[in-house]
Measured scan of single mutants.
Amino acid sequence: MSIQHFRVALIPFFAAFCLPVFAHPETLVKVKDAEDQLGARVGYIELDLNSGKILESFRPEERFPMMSTFKVLLCGAVLSRVDAGQEQLGRRIHYSQNDLVEYSPVTEKHLTDGMTVRELCSAAITMSDNTAANLLLTTIGGPKELTAFLHNMGDHVTRLDRWEPELNEAIPNDERDTTMPAAMATTLRKLLTGELLTLASRQQLIDWMEADKVAGPLLRSALPAGWFIADKSGAGERGSRGIIAALGPDGKPSRIVVIYTTGSQATMDERNRQIAEIGASLIKHW
């Protein structure tokens, strides 16, 4: 067993022997301040990774656009098919120029040779490549099948209805392509620590998230040296922004954090800054 596999296998073990965790309302004060600064709703939840206990939450059962955070769930569904012998990570998928959609920095470079399922998941999570996500959605049967996968996990809230990039439209009061912070946090925890996926697939999923290259201005910008984070960000229309993450000190994750916002007129930089400040408060009061 590799060191990384050992780390993920012992996530519940280490967490069980940690000192009790206590909620700190100071972080919620910052979440509410972010709402004021952005002029928009902000949803927040913080779960203990081992027990699933909610440590703090704000608007945990209000719907927010998922945006690209759905790509972690998508690759979880792909990995479940791999575990069941219905898919192979090494299978190569070929596609054409007509398949390319807006923001496809990886797939646009491989029109000639195609990409493997493993490479597509890596591109979808680490670079948020939209064509990679659409190609992977095709392998599982489309958005409705991802929703069905989530329902089978016990998540009857999260739903995907459309493809990239239309799913980022974020129309107010439109339930399409949305989740709730509580539902997303619980589902992410199941994917990373539950028995739904094999140990190898859980490790692969967290490795992809740990290698995320496009979430630097968010929670990662607030992390002290030595902290662990595996995350996936999302951005959408109407001032929408979000991030889902597993993080913790001492090089291992111990909490799940989900943050979503929508309806702001603020710039992307300002949305990023507010999420980073929430992260800084979380870490300060850990």
Rank of each mutant, 00 (worst) to 15 (best):
E277F: 06
G248N: 03
R159L: 08
A148P: 09
E61D: 10
R81K: 07
R238H: 14
H24Q: 08
K232L: 00
E46W: 04
G114F: 07
L136Y: 01
D48M: 05
H94D: 06
T112A: 13
D99P: 05
I140R: 03
R202A: 08
I259Y: 05
T178N: 03
W163N: 10
N272S: 14
R59W: 04
I206S: 10
T187V: 08
G242F: 00
K213L: 05
A235T: 07
T27M: 05
R91A: 14
S233Y: 01
I93S: 03
P60W: 14
A222W: 07
S201P: 03
R91T: 13
L28R: 11
A185T: 03
M153D: 04
L219K: 03
A276I: 09
I256C: 13
A148L: 13
N272L: 02
A34T: 12
L47A: 12
M66Y: 04
G216A: 12
Y260W: 02
G85Q: 07
T158W: 02
N168E: 03
M67L: 12
R255W: 02
I140T: 13
Q86W: 14
Q203G: 06
Q88W: 15
K213M: 05
G239F: 02
E195D: 15
A40T: 11
Y260D: 01
A266S: 12
A34N: 03
K53W: 13
K30V: 08
Q86I: 10
G85D: 07
C121L: 07
T116I: 13
I256L: 11
P65T: 04
N50D: 10
T147D: 07
L111C: 07
E35S: 05
M67E: 03
L100N: 04
S57R: 12
L247I: 12
G236P: 00
Q274D: 05
A183S: 13
E46T: 14
I275L: 15
D129A: 02
R159S: 11
Q37F: 09
L167Y: 01
W227E: 00
E277V: 06
I229Y: 03
K284M: 06
N173F: 11
G52I: 03
F70C: 13
E210P: 01
G114K: 05
D48H: 06
R59F: 03
V157Y: 15
Q204L: 11
S96T: 09
L150N: 15
P181F: 00
G263C: 13
N152Y: 12
W286Y: 06
R92P: 11
M115P: 02
E46N: 15
I171T: 15
F58Q: 11
L199Q: 07
V31T: 07
N98I: 06
G154C: 06
D174R: 02
E145S: 09
K30D: 04
T198N: 10
L188W: 04
F149I: 15
M67F: 04
N272D: 15
R59M: 04
D36A: 12
E210H: 14
V157A: 07
L89R: 04
D155G: 02
K232A: 01
G236N: 10
E56M: 11
